[in-house]
Simulated assay, not measured.
Amino acid sequence: MNEFEKRLRWGVDQLGLTLNDDVIERLLSYHGLLVKWNKAYNLTSVRDAMQMVDRHLIDSLSILPFLSHERLIDVGTGPGLPGMVAALVREEQSIALLDSNGKKCRFLNQVKMSLKVDNCQVVHHRLESWQPDEQYQQITSRAFATLSDMVAFSRHLLAKDGRFIAMKGLYPHDEIAQLPSDIEVVKVSPLAVPGTDGERHLVELGIKS
């Protein structure tokens, strides 16, 4: 077992998740591709491979208990965070990964092909103008935009009674205060992310009926 696998298994254990060996192997294969491609394509500002385990894999895994198994789209996904991580763990869930950056989408398509991630769709498009055939029950984002911008740019993608699920650092008091009047805060949950300094919060929003 190499150091990356030890660290990932430690993080998974700390989060209270149960992942089988095949899923761990797929996550580590994704990590390997991310490390390799990042050298040429600058997919993430995190350069250290061990830090990528903490700040990308374990951080993305921390929201799994908050996600249902319904259709999900990860907007501004970058190199697939948290969407590709979720897709690798939940092979039965339909997950779309949207980003306007061509390099990042090429990387995601390479991951999809190399690891046979058949349950995810890579969408290279600007968020506000993309029109899917079917809406999504869950829209996730990680450090993509303010809550108001996330809602404004992606609300056309949200199914009735769906949720916006945004990963944030500090409790976003100001961003919540600036939300439109028809948006309600369903829940704000502190995230305990092992190996990561600083506060993390998950903000769940809905459209008032």
Score class of each variant (00 low, 15 high):
residue 6 K to W: 02
residue 164 F to W: 15
residue 190 P to Q: 10
residue 131 Q to H: 06
residue 197 D to C: 00
residue 38 N to I: 10
residue 94 S to L: 08
residue 84 M to S: 10
residue 87 A to S: 11
residue 126 R to D: 03
residue 80 G to N: 11
residue 54 D to Q: 04
residue 50 M to N: 05
residue 16 G to V: 09
residue 6 K to G: 00
residue 7 R to S: 11
residue 27 L to A: 06
residue 71 R to H: 08
residue 49 A to H: 10
residue 187 K to C: 09
residue 147 L to D: 13
residue 67 L to A: 01
residue 70 E to C: 00
residue 23 V to L: 05
residue 43 L to F: 12
residue 140 T to R: 10
residue 15 L to G: 07
residue 12 V to L: 01
residue 13 D to Q: 11
residue 184 E to Y: 09
residue 15 L to R: 07
residue 181 S to N: 11
residue 79 P to T: 02
residue 176 I to E: 03
residue 166 A to M: 08
residue 82 P to M: 03
residue 175 E to N: 10
residue 128 E to A: 06
residue 56 H to Y: 06
residue 136 Y to M: 13
residue 134 E to Q: 15
residue 186 V to E: 14
residue 91 E to T: 14
residue 159 A to T: 08
residue 21 D to S: 13
residue 113 M to I: 00
residue 107 F to L: 12
residue 49 A to D: 15
residue 162 G to H: 03
residue 165 I to P: 02
residue 61 L to D: 07
residue 81 L to W: 04
residue 127 L to S: 08
residue 179 L to E: 07
residue 132 P to R: 08
residue 101 N to Q: 07
residue 118 D to R: 12
residue 76 G to Q: 13
residue 55 R to D: 00
residue 42 N to I: 01
residue 135 Q to R: 15
residue 16 G to A: 11
residue 185 V to T: 13
residue 77 T to S: 15
residue 209 S to F: 00
residue 182 D to G: 06
residue 90 R to E: 14
residue 146 T to N: 14
residue 118 D to H: 11
residue 25 E to A: 15
residue 208 K to E: 07
residue 13 D to M: 00
residue 155 R to H: 14
residue 105 C to T: 15
residue 58 I to P: 03
residue 40 A to V: 13
residue 140 T to H: 09
residue 131 Q to S: 12
residue 70 E to Y: 06
residue 4 F to S: 13
residue 162 G to F: 08
residue 146 T to E: 14
residue 47 R to A: 07
residue 160 K to V: 08
residue 95 I to R: 05
residue 106 R to E: 08
residue 114 S to F: 01
residue 124 H to Y: 05
residue 179 L to K: 04
residue 168 K to D: 12
residue 151 V to P: 10
residue 37 W to N: 05
residue 139 I to R: 08
residue 91 E to Q: 15
residue 136 Y to T: 02
residue 203 V to Y: 05
residue 35 V to Y: 06
residue 57 L to E: 07
residue 141 S to C: 15
residue 44 T to R: 05
residue 11 G to A: 06
residue 81 L to A: 09
residue 205 L to M: 08
residue 34 L to N: 04
residue 129 S to F: 10
residue 143 A to S: 13
residue 167 M to R: 09
residue 170 L to R: 15
residue 2 N to A: 07
residue 153 F to R: 12
residue 119 N to S: 13
residue 78 G to M: 10
residue 97 L to D: 10
residue 158 L to F: 09
residue 75 V to G: 09
residue 133 D to S: 14
residue 137 Q to D: 07
residue 15 L to I: 10
residue 182 D to T: 10
residue 185 V to W: 05
residue 113 M to D: 14
residue 153 F to H: 13
residue 39 K to Q: 14
residue 87 A to D: 09
residue 31 H to V: 04
residue 183 I to W: 04
residue 30 Y to A: 06
residue 117 V to T: 12
residue 198 G to V: 02
residue 96 A to E: 06
residue 199 E to L: 04
residue 20 N to M: 03
residue 29 S to F: 05
residue 184 E to M: 11
residue 152 A to C: 01
residue 105 C to Q: 00
residue 174 D to W: 00
residue 55 R to W: 00
residue 165 I to M: 12
residue 123 V to D: 05
residue 195 G to I: 07
